[in-house]
Design a binder for these strands. Structure first.
Length: 552
DNA sequence: CGTGAACGCGCC
DNA sequence: AGGGCGCGTTCACG
């Protein structure tokens, strides 16, 4: 939908592509709509903050095709230039001052007058940002501008996903809870299955019924030790190594207790309305460029409850997952031809096995994850030398990123997102340890801190570039679905969920194939956008299902 | 008493 | 003893 916007006595006059008009109240309208970049392209709205301005437009039945999010782009540029973000962008929700030629009455300048005075008008900020993006030194010309566009497109998608919501069957969710936990208990009470498990743990530990505070880690550890079980913490992985009849019911208790507290009845009451879960996504919420979420735990949706994510009657969920995204990103970043060969099929880990580097898919996976996260022990460390022999360039890439971090340097993603510098404290510690007369413990602490920073930068390059690929993918899917046809967002195929390397489209059943094609084509485009014609593929698996739990 | 760190665990 | 998160609970502290 192409929108034109003009000032109007009652607010802002918005004209859609069919000539229909609507007046949007001034209080609900963004500071600036800008930049007609040519007749052939739709307008790009330039505003301080998509998350602030877009939702009211969506509620008014309007959609914005392209935008430039000044707050998100400021964060990217500031990071690349190694400086702090300007004040308006540091605030969680950022309005901008009005330009002088527009009516100040549209906005409440009294709220924060000094901030308003300090903040350059949007048009000016936009021009400055475009210049900064253009002069940024990145591997490929225009990379940072591409990142700015992708980040902004992601912000639009995030607002739209919150607006339409994820189709959620509260009824199925309830049923699942009752089955696992028992009927909903009164407030403060334990569901019957949970109570039974707690009692069984007490029995097996030989303590008086009702005397064990099972939810208190210190007390639980004490009780376990009292029963002769040698544990230092109550972590599941540590419990799993023990042989004792109390362990099985305890582990089950922990799993169900988690379900209850994280995604139980309270969660359902708070987050699901009218058959939709409406999480708030936070684009750029993670330093690496990944999204975060705010409330509802959208990015930690446990597998246990995914059967409650259910398409509307006559609709389907088209769920796409980028297969082994991060190792493929590393392959492209490092231009490792041998690993590209291993990734030619749909299963890169199997390809690594077939190359002869390792013996099993599990080893390949563990080894690659260890290489990308900086694992130094266990199985992953053991297979690393074997991977290094066959894929020297890929391994060298992450090793170099780690060394840079250990030296206190920053690293960059493919499109130029820059890792934050280690803090002043970190640098002081390194200087102290390097100084004459430094003690052994000081040197050890500094070394530990340096290695920690190395693990961070090692992972930043890969995770951050994967996030960029995912943004480009999402933007491409959105554009394809968009151009398919006009009409209200919720009446045509639309994105409903994003999870780092997964996208979900809710679509009328008859248009499922169209959505699947969009997901596949946009993935191929994203690879070309980031890496040109490098011989690296980014296959996606696409499943058309009724419930999220039926995918993969 | 309220606040915040620490824990533990869910996701990628 | 592995990178990035969010969130609910417990517990120490002011």
């Amino acid at each position: 939908m192409h929108l034109a916007v003009d000032r109007h006595p009652g607010g802002m006059l918005v004209t859609d592509h069919r000539g229909g008009t609507e007046v949007v109240p001034a209080a609900a309208f963004p500071a600036y709509v800008v930049a007609q970049e040519g007749r052939s392209t739709p307008p790009r709205w330039v505003w301080s903050d998509t998350a602030l301005w877009y939702p009211p437009l969506l509620r008014a039945g309007l959609r914005v095709e392209r935008c430039h999010d000044l707050r998100l782009v400021e964060a990217i540029i500031a990071g690349a230039e190694g400086r702090a973000v300007r004040s308006f962008a540091a605030r969680p929700r950022a309005a901008l001052a009005m330009p002088e030629r527009q009516s100040a009455a549209l906005f409440d300048l009294e709220a924060e007058p000094r901030e308003a005075e300090r903040t350059p008008p949007a048009a000016e900020l936009h021009a400055e940002q475009l210049a900064a993006l253009a002069r940024a030194s990145t591997r490929a010309p225009g990379a940072l501008a591409l990142l700015a566009a992708a980040e902004s497109a992601g912000a639009l998608a995030a607002a739209e996903m919150t607006f339409t919501g994820l189709p959620w069957s509260a009824e199925d969710h309830e049923r699942l809870l009752v089955e696992a936990l028992g009927p909903r208990p009164a407030a403060g009470e334990r569901p019957v299955h949970l109570a039974a498990l707690a009692a069984e743990v007490e029995r097996q530990l030989g303590v008086r019924p009702g005397s064990l505070a099972i939810d208190s880690p210190p007390e639980l550890v004490a009780a376990l030790r009292g029963a002769g079980i040698d544990v230092a913490t109550t972590r599941s992985w540590e419990l799993q190594r023990q042989r004792h009849p109390a362990i099985a019911p305890l582990l089950q208790y922990k799993t169900l207790s988690r379900l209850m507290t994280a995604n139980g009845w309270n969660w359902l009451d708070e987050w699901v309305r009218d058959g939709r879960f409406r999480p708030t996504f936070v684009p750029g919420g993670v330093v690496t460029g990944r999204w975060a979420s705010d409330g509802g735990g959208a990015l930690q949706l446990p597998r246990q409850v995914r059967s409650a994510v259910r398409a509307d009657e006559g609709w389907v969920l088209v769920v796409a997952d980028a297969a082994q995204l991060e190792p493929r990103i590393l392959t492209a970043l490092s231009q490792d031809a041998e690993m590209a060969r291993a990734g030619a099929g749909v299963d890169l880990y199997q390809g690594i096995v077939d190359s002869g580097a390792v013996d099993s898919r599990e080893q390949a996976k563990l080894g690659m994850l260890g290489a990308m996260y900086g694992g130094t022990t266990g199985q992953s460390a053991r297979v690393l030398p074997r991977l290094q022999r066959v894929f020297p360039r890929a391994i060298a890439y992450v090793e170099e990123a780690a060394r840079a971090g250990e030296r206190g340097e920053t690293v960059r993603t493919r499109l130029g997102r820059t890792s934050p510098s280690p803090g002043e404290e970190w640098r002081e510690r390194q200087l102290l340890a390097a100084a004459e007369g430094a003690g052994e413990s000081e040197r050890r602490d500094a070394r530990t801190a340096a290695r920690g920073q190395g693990r961070f930068t090692r992972n930043f390059a890969v995770q951050g570039t994967a996030a960029e690929w995912a943004l480009a993918w999402m933007a491409g899917v959105r554009r394809r679905l968009w151009s398919a046809e006009g009409g209200p967002l919720a009446r045509q195929p639309h994105l409903v969920f994003f999870l780092h390397d997964e996208l979900m489209v809710h679509a009328p059943a008859a248009r499922a194939e169209e959505a699947a094609t969009a997901l596949r084509e946009a993935a191929a485009d994203a690879g070309r956008l980031l890496f040109g014609d490098a011989p690296v593929t980014f296959p996606v698996t696409v499943a058309t299902v009724q419930r999220y739990s039926e995918a993969k």
